[in-house]
Design a protein around this nucleic acid. Structure first.
Lengths: 134, 134
DNA sequence: TTTAAAGTCTACTAAAACAGTATACAAACA
DNA sequence: TGTTTGTATACTGTTTTAGTAGACTTTAAA
């Protein structure tokens, strides 16, 4: 029941770019040093963020990354889902075949977990990166 | 960001015992079959529940397990914590040394995650096993 | 008082996930 | 045209998860 290290790194990388402003390019090396994130690992995380359209990348000399979206429009939930996929508190909640009792909808515990999962998603969606800028 | 299979099994085992009533003994084999849980694995989970005092065990022939506590007093949070320990949404929230920026208390993101963590704990604590008895 | 059926304790193992690295490649600017 | 940047793919070591195994202990009934 925890977020991965990669997600935590992504939070910090996005916040770093948000502080520079939308469209302001910074190279991975600089962010890696400032935020104490292994560079190759950070590059890997950035590829997901680029693919998702949250960040844009610039290749070649003087390349780097810049925020593509207003920080106020980027939530913690967005980043979590980009990096590690949708949150699933219990495996039964994704795929009924994962419930070895095949009782997903009849099981009150699973209904409770579904509610908790929704609550977590909602909470994560309440925080956007504009709020984290000092 | 999900609960382990062991926790899910524990939920179902506790619910099974709750349906029998406090003090009503059932052997692991029966529960294993009814809830489709590997028996040896279930035995291992039960040891934690026994140690925590939620369940009492009876050894020897005609032994088994029985709920030791009123189901209304057992919450989802209790079981999660017994089986997999306290929930920590982000590793920084347990140990500041885990934050490679050493910024746990100054970091607004981590403060947000701390709030979400508390929310999850509170939600889990709102559900008790009496509520799940039809 | 023996024996069979229960749980206990410790250790082991296979598979998946996590965290990070490496190597080769492509683009861009100077 | 060469150096600096990101891209793509694949590899690797460690930890966690999920489950299994074997030897042992307890208990009740025959």
């Amino acid at each position: 029941m925890k977020l991965s290290q990669a997600t935590d790194y992504a939070f910090r990388a996005i916040l770093y770019l948000a502080r520079q402003g939308v469209g302001e390019k910074v190279d991975a090396q600089t962010i890696s040093e400032a935020e104490v994130i292994p560079k190759r690992f950070l590059l890997k995380i950035f590829r997901k963020l680029v693919q998702a359209g949250v960040v844009e990348s610039y290749r070649g000399k003087y390349g780097g990354y810049a925020l593509a979206v207003d920080p106020a429009k980027i939530t913690l939930k967005d980043i979590v889902e980009i990096v590690e996929g949708k949150i699933t508190v219990n495996r039964c909640l994704i795929d009924p075949d994962e419930c070895n009792k095949r009782a997903t909808n009849r099981c009150k515990i699973h209904n409770a977990l579904a509610e908790i999962q929704q609550e977590v998603n909602q909470k994560l969606a309440e925080y956007n990166f504009a709020q984290f800028l000092d």
